[in-house]
Design a protein around this nucleic acid. Structure first.
Lengths: 345, 345
DNA sequence: TTCAAAATCTGTAACGATACAGTAACAAAG
DNA sequence: CTTTGTTACTGTATCGTTACAGATTTTGAA
């Protein structure tokens, strides 16, 4: 009866139909909102029994913190943004990368947001957008260039990110890369092992960093294994498959036709195969071919093509881990990984 | 000089280093925060000149509304969630779908969030998650089943969504679907035109709705064009490529081998081609094949295979448009679209 | 000149969470 | 019996935005 009238503000009953909030739990347990909040994040100044009780009730009502509330108060978005060139995506390379990223994020509080851009627009735009609007806690980009303004910008702003591919600006940043130098080198070796000497390379466009790596490996291979390069004039993986096929056919019909061909991507290989066959040459008999590959269509349909696999799913996993590590403040040094070509046949 | 001392609260100067907010603009224009907010959304009770001034300043300082603020206040997330089975994604089918969705969302305020789930877990889980946490304003799902509990749940909660594929529950909901009935029918016709009569179908797994459509079209084709079905016992597109190849080889070596084969997917076709050739049969000579296809690898490497294209990018565009239309309250009737097989050769 | 209506503009409260600066109760030390 | 310290808990202010209910000024009609 004579309970002392306390000044304690009793938390009002929240409406029942909407999602439970801290207020709901506070009301149910008779505790303060702050206490509930701190109990749920296991703060040291909350009693063990109270924590237990709060956790129980929270589980019972199916409490999930409101992301907007957290984000507004703390500034943390719990979002990782994958910046994608729509044109690149049509080829479908990064689909397994999305899977890899998702695999890692699934066990964290992070969500994956796709931030697209068109190759016809400035690649810096989406990065600026994320930085200016605070749309994400971290970013993953691909198709890095030696002097990549996106990397420079994020480094300058000290924003967590990871790149698929390296840069050459003297800046140390997290990356995952496929060892394209090794790919170029191994590809030449495989061809020379089959007695091939005159080798043509379908390389990535020169503005991408991995062009440098692949060419360097290719040339080291030529030197080490005693082969020579057949030029594939002005044709690279940015060309259409039709153009690649046509150019390849022309070279194969010419007097200086190669007896070995290397393709920097599985898609390019398809066009090269068509060009070789259109010129009346036969794979494995007249000419051998080594191709990079991310799925296994070539192995099924043209088992004669020697393939070296690049694992995009692994890349996704490594990049997700690296970005989260950066967000959590771990040092960059340990966040640079390389994966290696895996011979498929 | 003798300006009346008003009670007007002057908005304090916000810190300069952080992102501009309504407060920043209010301070710069000398207006109230509410006025700025309403001016930017073109409310009718704000003067034309004021609106112009606010818009100018907003553009100058690079104002973007804080998403967390909007979301907290209005409950609107401005997010569309694409729910993906990670296993499915490894095949890379929905990569072009992501492109299509992104193309549409790019000109809206919506962001695309990938909500993954593993085929080993309950497909309802990610849907429940989005509904329970309010993580998105709309959802896109694929791989629909005739009685799809995800569709039932979202209908019941009146939550905006679109499905890639139809259902058979008597519920009217937005969808985009490829006309698999037509595909099955046209595929049979193409084979019969080439003089084939004994036809085998590699169909999708029976639990998916489009299995029903494809089989129905297949059987209608058999009747109309006078062909017969060769059973492909217990093998469907859920089987591994290795299993499909092996089973196909066995059938092709058997006494009742088909002279025409239909593949419900480009991936499956690759395995069928391998099986046919392993059995010593030759495409176009001994047996003809029609396959669905989303990229054009088959056309490049096995031009003998007749292909009918399914446009996943278009599907993404249609689904994004449908979901946004639902969010904006447009009626469902107009949000059901079908795309048709496109002959590639 | 007066007063209602229209046109503009504004402050306050609230969304849900957390940082911060407390308060209350009780035990141990002096 | 005070002081100090520890443990456990709580209220207030705030993040940026918008709904709502005014407030002020101008216009126009009577």
């Amino acid at each position: 009866m004579t309970e002392t009238a306390k000044t304690r503000t009793v938390v009002a009953a929240p409406s029942t139909d909407s999602r439970p909030t801290l207020k709901t739990i506070a009301f149910m347990t008779g505790l303060g909102i702050t206490t509930v909040s701190r109990a749920l994040k296991n703060a040291p100044d909350i009693g063990a029994e109270t924590k237990e009780r709060v956790r129980l009730v929270a589980a019972q009502v199916g409490y999930h913190p409101n992301r907007a509330g957290v984000r507004l108060r703390t500034g943390k978005t719990n979002v990782i943004s994958l910046i994608l060139s729509l044109e690149e995506e049509i080829i479908g390379l990064t689909s397994p990368m999305v899977v890899g990223i998702s695999e890692i994020l699934a066990s964290t509080q992070y969500h994956l947001v796709i931030t697209p851009y068109s190759a016809r627009s400035d690649p810096l735009d989406p990065v600026r957008y994320v930085l200016d609007t605070g749309a994400a806690d971290g970013v993953i980009i691909s198709r890095t260039e030696p002097k990549d303004p996106r990397v420079a910008l994020m480094m300058e702003r000290n924003f967590p990110f990871g790149t698929h591919g390296r840069t050459e600006m003297g800046l140390t940043h997290p990356y995952h890369d496929f060892d394209n130098e090794r790919f170029g080198y191994d590809a030449v070796r495989r061809l020379v092992e089959r007695g091939r000497r005159r080798i043509m390379l379908l390389h990535p466009p020169p503005y991408l960093t991995y062009h440098l790596h692949m060419r360097a490996g290719f040339e080291r291979g030529l030197r080490d294994f005693g082969a020579i390069a057949v030029p594939f004039n002005n044709v690279d993986l940015d060309n259409s498959l039709a153009d690649i096929r046509e150019a390849c056919e022309a070279v194969m019909r010419g007097p200086d036709a190669p007896d070995g061909v290397i393709s920097g991507s599985g898609g390019g290989a398809v066009a090269l195969v068509a060009g070789i066959e259109a010129a009346g040459r036969k794979l494995a008999r007249d000419v051998d071919m080594v191709s990079k590959q991310s799925n296994d269509f070539l192995n099924w349909l043209r088992p004669e093509v020697i393939t070296l696999r690049e694992d995009f799913r692994l890349a996704g996993r490594e990049l997700a881990k690296a970005v989260i590590a950066r967000i959590e403040g771990r040092s960059i040094g340990e966040l640079q990984t390389l994966s290696f070509p895996i011979p498929q046949n």
